[in-house]
Measured scan of single mutants.
Amino acid sequence: LNLKQAKEEAIKELVDAGIAEKYIKLIANAKTVEGVWTLKDEILTFTV
């Protein structure tokens, strides 16, 4: 999975969960695949 694909998957998951745009922007700015997954997990843990 490359960075672009990771971001697309994570953003789709966050949108489906009804997460606010400000958190989705954090994913869009992530620099690594690991960073994308870590941010996604943290956002889902603390906002859902």
Score class of each variant (00 low, 15 high):
residue 1 L to R: 10
residue 2 N to I: 11
residue 2 N to H: 11
residue 3 L to C: 04
residue 3 L to W: 01
residue 4 K to L: 12
residue 4 K to A: 13
residue 5 Q to G: 05
residue 6 A to E: 03
residue 6 A to V: 07
residue 7 K to R: 07
residue 7 K to N: 01
residue 7 K to F: 04
residue 7 K to L: 06
residue 7 K to S: 02
residue 7 K to E: 01
residue 8 E to D: 09
residue 9 E to A: 14
residue 9 E to S: 12
residue 9 E to T: 12
residue 9 E to D: 12
residue 10 A to S: 03
residue 10 A to H: 00
residue 11 I to D: 00
residue 12 K to H: 05
residue 12 K to C: 06
residue 13 E to Q: 13
residue 13 E to V: 09
residue 13 E to A: 13
residue 13 E to L: 12
residue 14 L to A: 03
residue 15 V to K: 13
residue 15 V to A: 09
residue 15 V to T: 13
residue 15 V to E: 10
residue 15 V to F: 07
residue 16 D to C: 12
residue 16 D to K: 15
residue 16 D to S: 11
residue 17 A to F: 08
residue 18 G to E: 03
residue 19 I to K: 03
residue 19 I to L: 07
residue 19 I to N: 01
residue 20 A to H: 09
residue 20 A to E: 13
residue 21 E to H: 09
residue 21 E to Y: 09
residue 22 K to R: 10
residue 22 K to M: 11
residue 23 Y to T: 02
residue 23 Y to V: 03
residue 24 I to N: 02
residue 25 K to E: 10
residue 25 K to M: 13
residue 25 K to L: 11
residue 26 L to N: 03
residue 26 L to K: 05
residue 26 L to V: 05
residue 27 I to E: 00
residue 28 A to V: 10
residue 28 A to E: 15
residue 28 A to Q: 14
residue 29 N to E: 12
residue 30 A to Y: 01
residue 30 A to V: 06
residue 30 A to P: 02
residue 31 K to I: 09
residue 31 K to H: 07
residue 32 T to L: 02
residue 33 V to I: 11
residue 33 V to P: 06
residue 34 E to N: 06
residue 34 E to P: 05
residue 35 G to R: 13
residue 35 G to Y: 10
residue 36 V to Y: 01
residue 36 V to W: 01
residue 36 V to P: 01
residue 36 V to F: 03
residue 37 W to Q: 14
residue 37 W to L: 15
residue 37 W to V: 09
residue 37 W to D: 10
residue 38 T to Y: 13
residue 39 L to K: 05
residue 39 L to Y: 04
residue 40 K to H: 08
residue 40 K to L: 15
residue 40 K to A: 06
residue 40 K to N: 02
residue 40 K to G: 01
residue 41 D to C: 13
residue 41 D to W: 12
residue 42 E to L: 15
residue 42 E to D: 08
residue 42 E to S: 08
residue 42 E to V: 11
residue 42 E to R: 14
residue 42 E to F: 14
residue 43 I to F: 07
residue 44 L to R: 03
residue 44 L to N: 03
residue 45 T to K: 15
residue 45 T to W: 14
residue 45 T to M: 14
residue 47 T to S: 11
residue 47 T to N: 12
residue 47 T to Y: 15
residue 47 T to P: 10
residue 47 T to D: 08
residue 47 T to G: 15
residue 48 V to R: 13
residue 48 V to N: 12
